[in-house]
Nucleic acid binder design. Structure first.
Lengths: 250, 250
DNA sequence: TAGATTGTTAATCGATTAACAATC
DNA sequence: TAGATTGTTAATCGATTAACAATC
């Protein structure tokens, strides 16, 4: 058990020079950042259809959001619209891409060439979203030396040296959860400053290192809790009149 | 202590199983639902270490959360702790599993046997999280008939019939985005009532159908926007190393 | 112009955090 | 008991939504 006094120590990191996130000194809300890719993908589809102007009303209508919320979200990226007209689709896309750093692609190393790692290595479109996975690493001799979707799988012990030589800044962890912390240690020691974590393990990293954990099971939890509610209310309706009609699947 | 309080306490203990929150009309906040799997996976690790009792303070400490928040979150699942002691690890795990419906596994069909679909088909642990993928579907003749991680890949045109015959309730979409809507239509027409969507397309579904879209790029957006901030502030430190006060003009 | 839309300020709503009473 | 912890109510904080002025 570690009873660190870190609990209070993390308050100090608040005063860190956040830079003026947008024009004003306010931090951009996380919900806003999560919605930006949704707008972006909508804009991509819109562009494919040949549209070159779009209004917040239109976006909000299609995505079932509040128009004011869309307007505020977009404003955080620094874009300026034209009253009566809206936004230029191209300009808006670029504004989002720039805000998220997607126009300045960073190389990334992936550790854990299992099912999920393989899927990410073959996922098209990361390059247009700021991340370019250049190589994979594993500790399984069977996997090492193989190529997955055109990318080499290397011995994980070679990671630190390569991180330093190639100045790689992003690490992706798709190992089993038990190894996640030691992989994170290896990465941060070598100089990785941003970790995209696909395990359920909470990672302890040095101050300043960015960790984002993709919550696959969080998404599943929303789905299944809604399903529980739905099934429960279906049963309640059923109970009212007739009994034993529906097959009781254990 | 007057006897009115006792009466109240008695009334509450009777409806414990159903959970007072859901029964009394209060919706469980989505952030709470997303945190439940995090608690659950922490409890799994705790159990492996042989612990059988845990307090909110302990959980909050380890996951860097507020103890009160943890206590409230757990209360939504209907669990009751013991003052001075905490919660029984097993009981708490089961309480979360039950709330999320993970103890009542539902069969699911997956459409789109590409990289991501393949990864999900091979993902261990879905069965302990309420979802059992029983078969995959695709429209690519090369993929149809093959077996992926022990699961058959069938022609997508056979989906409606099988959904009806097997009473499958959950559909998972891992196709390219362009096909997502038509796959969703196929699913809902056949009787699927919950869709786990891994594309960036917003799905239109009949009322009552549950849709949960996993936001992979939302997670990436958080990571990359933080990285942009970090790199920006690193550069600022480098450039104007001996800059005076708040002379920053814009 | 008239009307649709942006941009901003104010009000509302909900989640988080704090305070404190109850409990064993 | 004393003290740690639960459970609940109140206060705070932040995001969403509403209202409205500015704009072309």
């Amino acid at each position: 058990m570690d009873f660190l006094d870190k609990g209070k120590a993390f308050e100090q990191s608040k005063t860190q020079e956040e830079g003026k996130a947008s024009e004003q000194g306010k931090a951009v809300p996380e919900p806003t950042i999560r919605r930006l890719p949704v707008y972006h993908s909508f804009l991509v589809r819109l562009k494919e259809k040949g549209r070159d102007v779009v209004s917040c009303t239109h976006i909000a209508d299609d995505l079932k959001l509040d128009p004011t919320q869309v307007r505020k979200d977009l404003a955080f990226t620094g874009i300026a619209g034209k009253p009566k007209v809206g936004y230029l689709v191209n300009e808006l896309m670029q504004s989002i891409e720039h805000f998220l750093g997607w126009d300045n692609v960073n190389d990334a190393f992936l550790v854990g060439a299992g099912h999920l790692g393989t899927a990410l290595l073959g996922y098209p479109g990361f390059a247009t979203h700021g991340v370019n996975i250049v190589a994979a690493f594993d500790n399984d001799p069977i996997k090492i030396g193989r190529t997955v979707h055109g990318k080499m799988v290397l011995d994980v012990t070679k990671l630190p040296d390569l991180v330093q030589r190639m100045h790689v800044k992003i690490g992706i962890i798709t190992t089993p959860g038990q190894m996640a912390q030691s992989v994170a240690d290896l990465m941060t020691t070598a100089g990785i400053i941003a970790i995209w974590n696909f395990t359920t393990t909470r990672l302890d990293v040095p101050e300043g290192v960015i960790v984002e954990t993709d919550q696959l099971f969080g998404s599943l939890a929303i789905l299944s809790s809604k399903l529980v509610e739905r099934i429960k209310s279906d049963k309640e309706q059923c109970h009212g009149s007739s009994n034993g009609e529906a097959g009781q699947a254990s």
